[in-house]
Simulated assay, not measured.
Amino acid sequence: MKQQIAIKTAVVIGNTITLECSPADCDKARAVIDEGKPLAAVIGTASQKRSLSANAYAWTLMNQLAAKINRPVLDIYRDLIRDIGGSSALVTLRADAAKAFKNGWESKGDGWQVHKLDEMTTPQGTFYNLQCWYGSSQFNPSQMHRLIELIVQECQQQGIPTMTPEEISKLKGLTDDADPQ
């Protein structure tokens, strides 16, 4: 069993590390320890996730835009996802594995997309180069801020009212000085 926990504080004394976490996270860790199997740990810094208020605002605007231009909201969303830097990966796969890969990738959410860039035939078989976009659920605050900026630009071109840049910057999770509540 594997569990992920949030660490409130960590103290290192010699070769001993003491971690403080929430009661729920302690219960998760205890369940793994109680299995009696050898343990391994990975530790890293926690990254700030985008906020639900920013996400809700993005979807509110995209729905208004979709109604105004008579276009499916998911088409708008998927197009805008592709304009966010750092939101894709390039993958090379055997052609016979590409369909299963695409189905698995795109099943992760509405924004998760795979596009074939090109095809290479080699003595070992045919291979596809694929560009794979992550959905906004994986975006960091900077990427989410950029997505909202793009949506706002599209809405303003259609005369749809939007928040001011100052109001947008106060959405939870979009900037370092945003309200942490």
Rank of each mutant, 00 (worst) to 15 (best):
T126M: 09
M144T: 14
K108Q: 14
C21A: 15
M163S: 00
D25E: 09
E106K: 04
Y57A: 09
N15M: 15
A29S: 13
G111F: 06
G111I: 03
C132A: 15
G36I: 06
G104M: 09
C21I: 08
N63L: 02
S22E: 14
A56G: 10
A58C: 03
E167I: 03
I160S: 05
H115G: 03
I151K: 01
L130P: 11
R71W: 07
A24D: 12
C155M: 04
V11C: 07
G104L: 09
A46P: 04
R78S: 15
A89C: 04
A89N: 07
I84C: 14
S51L: 01
L93H: 04
A89D: 13
Q181Y: 07
A178D: 10
N140D: 13
P141K: 05
G104A: 13
G125S: 02
Y134Q: 12
T162V: 13
V32Q: 09
H115Q: 12
G44C: 05
R94C: 08
T122W: 04
R82Y: 02
F139D: 00
K170S: 04
V32N: 11
A100Q: 13
G44L: 02
V114P: 12
Q156T: 07
M62C: 06
A41D: 01
S22L: 05
Y134L: 06
P23N: 12
Q113K: 08
K49H: 07
F101Q: 06
P141V: 10
I148T: 01
K8T: 15
A95F: 14
G109H: 07
P165C: 03
H145Q: 15
S136I: 01
I76Q: 08
G159L: 08
K172M: 10
I7Q: 02
C155W: 01
Y77S: 12
D96V: 02
